[in-house]
Design a protein around this nucleic acid. Structure first.
Lengths: 213, 213
DNA sequence: AATATGATTATGTATAGACATATTCAGAAC
DNA sequence: GTTCTGAATATGTCTATACATAATCATATT
């Protein structure tokens, strides 16, 4: 037992082994500090980390208890297509299909390729009021996806995956029969001031979204 | 500027505003402590939190720099169907379709209902060597999904979503035409000793997976 | 009984000081 | 030039102490 990370591990062991049962109160920081032979601040650091991960619920004066439903969270990286493709050992490329402008909104369609085969079809809107620099960018050279991730830091957003079947447009560009099941990703990102961009991405048949728990 | 959380917010602001550009070195802890009029330990706590969230990369002696690609991670809760359904304001129910056993593996099919309408079709395998208690459970009463989340704490796992079309089996139970696009979730969970369970969940048409960034 | 008040308690956080550890850098030895 | 060695430095962490804050409990007041 050395650093707070070890204390965290030991506490997690007790939770997972049900030595500290779900919903139960655990000893207070002072008691654990004495048991583990360390300062209270060290125990505090360990328990705070566990609380942040959802294993513990802590309230002043009321003490610390094991979370009733240790809600585990799955995490996945926000997809940047180039990295996604290159991580598969394939060469990335993209083709800008068309760009248009409607008031303060920039609209564009883009096809992403992996080893020269269709990988995903992008349909994007960019709010030029929030990202004026986007008006000068040549999205045939750098993909909008990539440029925005690097140049438009955002605060929060939502991502939604759903299943749909390929229509005529998707079938043409993704080179698959109409009616093929596709994964559709819709993503909206916001800064403090308001919406930045929204994308609808139709992935080529067989695409899977994997995340780690 | 009071607690370490405020320092964290201020540092994040500087990162997002590119006052501290991607890849750049930021002032060291002692300097920031002086600038912010607090102790080094307080700065340390704030910067550690940002490093944990992927905004900063810290190395001893080399200092702290802004992450080149502030890899944002999307998070979602590991789905527990009852909670998922009840969060939508619907009543949850489930029907056990069949159970069988092949050696140390328990196999079962189950239909999950929301307001008495099909919500998801589950196809699960449980390794009885890891979770012997599962052999005694009546999964007609409590769903396997729910029982396992509560009784088989796991360390890690993978979740994969893909799109597929309904076959004869799914079409029958989910009450949709064959060929309807469906979201398919495959999840495998492991404890330290090995695999615990794997599930294939076919969601009813129209299901969307949403996550927050 | 209902309500207000104050004491108690567990966590939240800040501080100064100390030492540990990883890494870099400069200079010495070959 | 290359390799080794030790000094310098930024972060990592622990400690003891102190006070802040929120929630609870017991008591006193109405």
């Amino acid at each position: 037992m050395q650093g707070w990370q070890d204390l965290q591990a030991e506490a997690l062991r007790r939770i997972q082994s049900r030595e500290w049962p779900p919903g139960g109160l655990i000893p207070n920081e002072a008691a654990l500090a004495e048991e583990w032979g360390c300062a209270r601040a060290t125990v505090n650091r360990a328990l705070q980390a566990l609380a942040e991960d959802g294993w513990l619920e802590r309230r002043r004066r009321a003490g610390t208890r094991v979370a009733l439903s240790p809600q585990r969270r799955a995490q996945m990286a926000v997809p940047v297509l180039r990295q996604e493709v290159e991580a598969l050992g394939l060469t990335y490329d993209h083709r800008l299909l068309n760009v248009s402008r409607k008031g303060q909104t920039l609209l564009l369609h883009c096809l992403h390729l992996a080893d020269h085969r269709p990988y995903a079809l992008e349909d994007r809107e960019i709010d030029l009021a929030r990202v004026p620099a986007a008006a000068q960018v040549d999205f045939a050279t750098i993909s909008a996806n990539e440029w925005l991730v690097q140049n438009a830091p955002f605060d929060r957003g939502t991502m939604t995956y759903e299943a749909d079947v390929a229509g005529a447009f998707e079938a043409t560009y993704l080179r698959c029969p109409e009616g093929t099941p596709l994964m559709i990703l819709t993503r909206r990102t916001f800064s403090e001031e308001g919406p930045i961009t929204s994308v609808r991405m139709a992935y080529a048949p067989g695409h899977a979204v994997t995340m780690v728990i």
